[in-house]
Design a protein around this nucleic acid. Structure first.
Lengths: 207, 207
DNA sequence: TAGATTGTTAATCGATTAACAATC
DNA sequence: TAGATTGTTAATCGATTAACAATC
């Protein structure tokens, strides 16, 4: 199945998914694009357009089946895969991510931690042992890691990305503020916290 | 000065800024849109278009003065304001942000920490005392806090946002995975980590 | 039936890319 | 001068919004 879905749509699906979960907990079985849009500050037209990309889920005159739509989005996003993460760089941010509970609720789990600092190798974070970066290839294979999370300083990030790719991860989630080069078949998502903070600064400076 | 600049352009400025800093450290005085684009995987046309929004900085046939352009972007983004942050919710993520060194290099500083948990109020994180959320109004005024950072669970986030606005912050940086409602004159930036991670899952599931 | 709501087509809007005159 | 590179206008592309027929 090779359908082209815009990144804008893909980025809204997790919001729909999260809201549908909450709505389901409220024992609501059917929801309209209007109500979903109201909860998310997204126009109902936008929501219908996004959902129509994947087929016809709704019932005219009625709305969408909450449970069915939730499951469908979960599958579109591939969350049923229960991806396994390895975090490289167990500093403050890496450590926080190792403890981040919201991942688990999306089906992700932290399978391994790596650091190059001999002082923390062997310690545990959230009951997960910190391994030496030297053992990355062996352990990533053994632990069936799917996603490499990069939380090292910018000047070490490309090297870590290369190690992760060589070790066979299927995707990379990068928190280092630098451009990474990876093979085209490896999905890469950058989380650059300085962009959002700088944008906030910009808007606060206007007027 | 009330000029409309697209969010897409605003989000690229921090990348230009960061790269210009690195280039300046390499003692390079002049850079072309071509070279800047090469370093960031952005087309030179896009860069020239973005920069032209603010005036004419470059010299035809030559390129851009690295130092001058860097300073100009710093000012456009308002980073010279040296904004002061208050982090509300000193869990793993809040604690990591309190220690995040990359903010300091952009001129931001952490002026205060807040939590509702009596057990950690009074302790210190990165040499900054954790205050009770009950004292938020008084301390935000005293410490001249500009930006409120929300790192509490989703179901407490709106309440914290309301407290921050009432306390007089000028902007909000939200890490809680939920939609917040704030007055229109308060810039709000959401950092929703589950979006990027879900998008990664989507791309890894294709083919 | 009347009212509600989807799915889809058409219109609009905005951002990116291409082209090139100006000029260092 | 010839080559390089900007700034800007025009063309293209893609995403959002509007409109409405279909239908529950």
């Amino acid at each position: 199945m090779k359908k082209i879905i815009s990144q804008a749509t893909i980025d809204r699906l997790p919001l729909y998914f999260r809201t549908l979960r909450l709505v389901e907990e409220e024992s609501i079985n059917i929801i309209s694009s209007d109500e979903l849009g109201r909860r998310l500050d997204i126009t109902p037209e936008q929501i219908r357009k996004d959902l129509a990309t994947f087929g016809q889920f709704g019932r005219k005159g009625i709305g969408y089946d909450v449970h069915e739509l939730k499951e469908k989005i979960e599958n579109i996003l591939g969350l049923q895969n229960k991806w396994r993460l390895a975090i490289v760089g167990v500093g403050h941010l890496g450590g926080a991510l190792a403890n981040y509970v919201n991942f688990a609720s999306l089906g992700f789990s932290v399978a391994a931690l790596f650091d190059k600092n001999k002082k923390i190798v062997g310690s545990e974070v959230n009951n997960i042992k910190v391994n030496s970066i030297d053992d990355i290839k062996k352990i990533i294979a053994k632990k069936s890691v799917d996603i490499g999370v990069i939380t090292v300083p910018a000047d070490e990030a490309q090297n870590v990305a290369d190690l992760l790719v060589a070790a066979g991860v299927k995707g990379i989630w990068n928190f280092a503020p630098t451009k990474l080069t990876v093979p085209p078949f490896i999905p890469l998502v950058n989380e650059d916290l300085s962009i959002g903070l700088s944008a906030l600064s910009y808007h606060m400076s206007q007027e």
